[in-house]
């Protein structure tokens, strides 16, 4: 053993080769390690639809909404974990335009996502953050929002109102219509 060590010490080339090989082997191992780590962190890029597919969500009896009126409804997000708590309860504004025609708006202001509030007297949605204002039909009335409210697609089946949702709508990912 000692003889060999001395050998190594006296042979710098051999030591150098071992060092280089060691670095190279670790580089390979590092890449192998990096693959699952990066894949884990950036799973949103690899499988965006695994976590964010939208689904039809029941919003209760269609007749609990009065024609010509708008009111708040809430649903439990279809993609939840048991520890989500209240954050999985998502509110939305339901407007019954006509008997079979509904408009359901996301709560989030299109400017920066703050919760818009409905005022039935003036028939306006107002945002408490930067003063975005929308009309009854969700179109932009005033303020900084770049577009009207995000709107869910809706359907009525067997007297129940359904909306298609499951994501936090943003400008780059509005609700699919």
């Amino acid at each position: 053993m000692t003889e060999k060590k001395e050998d190594d010490a006296q042979n710098p080339t051999r030591r150098n080769v071992l060092f280089k090989a060691g670095v190279a082997v670790n580089a390979v191992a590092g890449v192998l390690l990096a693959i699952p780590i990066v894949g884990y962190i950036f799973s949103a890029f690899a499988h965006p639809k695994l976590v964010g597919a939208e689904a039809w969500i029941a919003l209760g009896d269609a007749d609990s909404y009065v024609t010509g009126q708008t009111r708040l409804a809430t649903y439990r997000n279809p993609f939840t974990r048991s520890w989500d708590g209240a954050t999985a309860e998502i509110p939305c504004w339901v407007r019954r335009v006509e008997d079979q025609k509904f408009q359901v708006f996301a709560i989030n202001c299109t400017h920066l996502g703050c919760p818009v509030r409905w005022f039935q007297e003036s028939k306006l949605f107002m945002c408490p953050c930067h003063g975005g204002i929308y009309y009854e039909d969700g179109s932009r009335a005033a303020g900084p929002p770049p577009r009207g409210l995000f709107e869910y697609s809706t359907k009525v089946e067997n007297g129940t109102l359904y909306v298609k949702g499951g994501i936090l709508p943003t400008l780059s990912e509005p609700l699919s219509s």
Partner: peptide, 15 residues
């Protein structure tokens, strides 16, 4: 009066 609408009294209390 509207049918089938629960008042927040009976709704979820903060869990």
């Amino acid at each position: 009066s509207f049918a089938n609408q629960s008042s927040p009294d009976s709704e979820r209390e903060p869990k």
